[in-house]
Amino acid sequence: MGANRGIGPARCLAVPVDAPLLQARQLTFGYGAAPVLQAIDLDVSKGSCTLIRGDNGAGKSTLLHLLQGKVQPTAGWVRLSGRPLRGQRRRLALVPQAPSLRWHYPINLAGLVGMGCGDQAQRTDQALHQVGLAGLAHAPIAALSGGQRQRALIALALASQAEVLLLDEPFACLDDHSRLQLGELIQALVASGTAVVLTAHGTLPGALPQRRVLHLQQGQLKQTEPAPGDRP
């Protein structure tokens, strides 16, 4: 169940150093007349971890959906490697707080993860090892626990070779052990070069990598000092 298997030892990386992999400029969005996000600028580099904090309803999930291209902004743009998202959305993977995936679908875990890579056995095995679920490859997805489901969705994203992982409240509703495992997994993914953007409120597990902490408040994104619970 080691979260780092197949990746190598986790290490802390400096943030951000390269040209941004994902760029958002003047991103604005509102539901009807009410603005939710106003002129958001965000750069996400390869192998970086960005934590977005904010109260309930601050627009954290909306921001992730905009970054993924699922929702279109009323103004501004998002680019991946300098190009518009259209046609390359597979390079981004959003793991939502309430996934739309139907967990009673007749498929086992290896089958689910394999769907991300055209059933390539090697990539499926690698992704399952990365998230520490190789032992459950043949289990039906309906039998997975909450924490295992989170990691299964991340494995699906890894099998799809997503370069940017957008995790919406990944630690919500997880017990301490599952939080720790997921924190270690995120640390390992960042160390292997995956860019991770996650939203959270409340305390975070200690295993998370060094990260940039942004606070979403009144539609604006502000860089803040890490809170005590955010420190690696």
């Binding site: 993924q68 699922k70 046609g87 959305r89 597979r90 739309s100 995936l101 498929i107 769907m115």
Partner: peptide
Amino acid sequence: FKQLQWLGLDPDGAADRE
């Protein structure tokens, strides 16, 4: 077959995969 699987398993995920 694969696309039909996506449609049943995760329509939102299928849309994300364009």
